[in-house]
Design a protein around this nucleic acid. Structure first.
Lengths: 337, 337
DNA sequence: TCTAGCACTCTGTGTTCCCGAGTGCCAAGT
DNA sequence: ACTTGGCACTCGGGAACACAGAGTGCTAGA
C-alpha cells in the first residue's frame, strides 16, 4: 500500500512543512529533496497519501500539509531522535550543575528546556512516594502552634503550620520530635502511615489529641501534594506559533495544574523512561498541540515527568532529542544529591 | 486652562474608551453622558484637551483616545478607587483562608488577583529582611554534606545543601546547631551577619573551615534570594487584549524575574502601602502596559509588593480597588500566622 | 509505471470606489 | 464670551473586481 518512495515523500513533506510553515507542493518537493522522480509522480504519491489520510490540503489547489496521522507515522517510523550538539550538552551540564536545591533544579530545568526547544517546557515536581524520610522537625511557634518540617532524601522540604487543639509544652514537643525521628528516619514515605499508626498509644494519654493532629497533618502532607505540582516556562514561545485551538486556551491549560497533569500523561506504566509523543487530537483537552514527554528520576526510581508542549507542526526529532537529554541530565543530578 | 467641564469630558472619554475599546467621538459623548452641551461644544473642549496632550486621535477624523498623560490625570484627579462588592470580599476571604503555608498563600493570592481583575497578577514573595529567625536546623546528609534549613517567623523555610570542606562528626554538627540557635533565635535577619561574625573564633579551631562554609551559605541565603522571587498568574488574560509592545515581549518580561521586579517598582520608600500606578511609557521596559501595585505585609512591616499588569486601556478604578483589597487581606492573613 | 503537458481551480494581493463617522471652522444666537 | 448649528473636508475600512501564480488532476505517450 505504502511503498518506500511514498514514505520518503511523506517524510519530505513533514520536514519541509515544519521548516517553512507553508503547504508544500509537488514541484518544490521534487526539487529540494533529491527524489529522482518528476513532480507528476510525486503528485500521484501525494494523492495516495491523501487517500490514506496522512496528508491533506487546506484548500483545493494548495500544497499538502501533514495530518495528525501523518505526523504519527513520521514519528514512529520515518524519523530518528536527533542527538544534541556538543555545545548544547555542555550548556545543559553547566547550567544544571549550579542548582542549590530541589526547587532550583526544577526551575532551572524548566527554563533550560524551554530555551533549548524554543517551546513551552513543563516539569512535574518529583513525587515523594518513593523517597525516604531524612528528618522530621517540629518547631514550636507559640504555645498553640507548631511548624512541621519534613525533609526527604531527594532534598525536598515540606512545611506545615499546625494549630494544636490544646496547649503543649515545648519539652513534650521535643520528645515527640525525637520519637518521630527514631521511628521514621530513613523509611520510605509510603511506609510512614503504617509506622505511625500505633504511635499515639505509646505516648502519654494527655498528649494524644495533639499527637493525633500532628500525625494527621503529616499524613496529609505525604499523600496530597506532589504529583500535583507542575511548573512551566517559555510561554513567550507561544507568541510566534499559531494554535488552531487558540492561544488563550493553551495559556489557560498551562495555569491549570490538573489539565497540565493529564497532558503530561498518566504515567505510561510499562516503560516510563521512554519518550511519549502525543500529537494533536491524541491529546485530551488541547487538541491542537503536541506534547513530547518522558519520565525522569534517579536510577530505576521513576520520580516524575517532564516535557514540552508545542504546536502540532513541531520539529519532532530535535525536540525529542532535547527532552531525552535534559531528562537524563536531571536524573543524574538528582541521583547525585 | 482646564475648566470643570473639560475635565468631565476627559473623564467621559476615558470611561467610554475603556469600556468600548473604540475611539470616542463628540456625538456619542454628548449623548451618552449627560453633559448638557452640544457635540460642537464637546469638540471645542476636545481640541483643547488634545492641544494639552491629554488625548489624541489615531488618524484624522476618528474619535479621540486618551494618551498616557490623559490616563494619568484621570487616575490622579478624576476617578475614585472602586470598592469591591460584598460577594467579592467574601470570596477573597474564604479563598485565602484555606492556605496551608506561605507558598500556598502566595499561590492563592496571585491566582485570586488574576481572576478578580481579569488581568495578569504579579506577587513578590515576602522578603526575609524584616523577619526574624525562628529556628536554624542542620541536618547531616552524609559525612561530607549537611542540609541547612532556616525557618523564619513569617513561616518561610529556606533550605540549602552544603558541601563541607572536610568530614565533620555528627556531634559537632549538633553542637554547632545549638550554638547557632542560641545565637540567632528571634533575631532580625538583617542583624544575622553581625551576630555570626565572631562565631568561628568561639569554636574549636578544627571546626573552623566547616563553620566558615556553613556561615557563608547562611549569609548568602539571607541576602540573595527573596526580593527576587516573583510569581505571576493569569497570562491567559493577555490573549484578548492587544498590546502595542507585542504579546511576546510581555510574556518574556513575565518570565524574567529581574524585569518583573523592576516593573513592580523599586519600593517607593515614602509610603509603601499606597497604591502605585504606572501608566504606559512611565514604565521601564514595557512601555505599552500599565501596572497597578502596592506593598503588602503584616502591620507596618512592609514585606513585599503585589499588583497587576495590563494594557494601558484598563479599568483603573476597579483594578485599583481589587489590588488594594487583596493586599489588605493578604497582610491580614500573614499577620495572623 | 513514470513522465510531460494542459486545462482548471483556487487563494492572496492589489486597485478602485464609495460610504460614513468624525472633524474643524465659521457665522449666528444667547 | 461662550455655545450652537451648519457645512465642507478627510480619512479609514469594507465591497467589488481583476489578475497572477502556485498547485492540482487528468490524460496520453514513453
Amino acid at each position: 500500500m505504502l511503498d518506500e518512495r511514498k514514505l520518503a515523500v511523506l517524510r519530505a513533506i513533514v520536514e519541509d512543512y515544519v521548516s517553512t510553515n507553508e503547504p508544500v507542493g509537488s514541484k518544490a518537493l521534487a526539487d529540494r529533496h533529491n527524489l529522482k522522480v518528476s513532480p507528476a509522480t510525486v503528485r500521484n504519491d501525494m494523492a495516495a497519501l491523501e487517500e490514506e489520510g496522512y496528508i491533506t490540503q487546506p484548500h483545493t489547489s494548495a500544497g499538502r500539509v501533514p495530518t495528525d496521522k501523518g505526523y504519527r507515522l513520521f514519528v514512529d517510523r520515518l524519523s530518528q531522535v536527533k542527538p544534541l550538539s556538543g555545545a548544547e550538552r555542555r550548556a545543559i551540564e553547566t547550567f544544571l550543575a549550579g542548582a542549590v536545591d530541589l526547587d532550583d533544579v526544577v526551575t532551572r530545568t524548566v527554563r533550560l528546556l524551554a530555551q533549548l526547544t524554543r517551546q513551552v517546557a513543563v516539569v512535574q515536581y518529583p513525587t515523594l512516594t518513593r523517597s525516604t524520610v531524612r528528618h522530621v522537625e517540629l518547631v514550636p511557634l507559640n504555645d498553640r502552634r507548631v511548624m512541621l518540617v519534613l525533609i526527604t532524601n531527594t532534598g525536598r522540604v515540606e512545611q506545615r503550620v499546625i494549630e494544636l487543639p490544646e496547649v503543649v509544652e515545648e519539652a513534650r514537643i521535643a520528645h515527640l520530635r525525637a520519637v518521630l525521628n527514631a521511628c521514621l528516619d530513613g523509611c520510605g514515605l509510603s511506609s510512614v502511615p503504617d509506622l505511625v499508626a500505633d504511635l499515639p498509644e505509646r505516648l502519654p494519654a494527655e498528649d494524644r489529641p495533639a499527637v493525633a493532629t500532628i500525625l494527621s497533618v503529616l499524613l496529609e502532607t505525604l499523600v496530597e501534594r506532589h504529583d500535583e505540582k507542575i511548573v512551566f516556562a517559555g510561554a513567550a514561545n507561544l507568541a510566534g506559533a499559531d494554535f488552531s485551538t487558540g492561544l488563550r486556551d493553551v495559556l489557560e491549560a498551562l495555569e491549570e495544574q490538573v489539565v497540565l497533569m493529564r497532558l503530561l500523561g498518566e504515567t505510561t506504566s510499562d516503560t516510563p523512561s521512554a519518550l511519549t509523543v502525543r500529537i494533536g487530537s491524541e491529546n485530551p483537552y488541547l487538541r491542537g498541540t503536541s506534547i513530547v514527554a518522558t519520565g525522569y528520576g534517579s536510577g530505576d526510581n521513576q520520580l516524575a515527568r517532564l516535557g514540552v508542549l508545542g504546536p502540532t507542526r513541531m520539529d519532532y526529532p530535535v525536540t525529542m532529542g532535547a527532552v531525552r537529554a535534559v531528562a537524563r541530565y536531571v536524573s543524574q543530578i538528582l541521583a547525585a544529591s
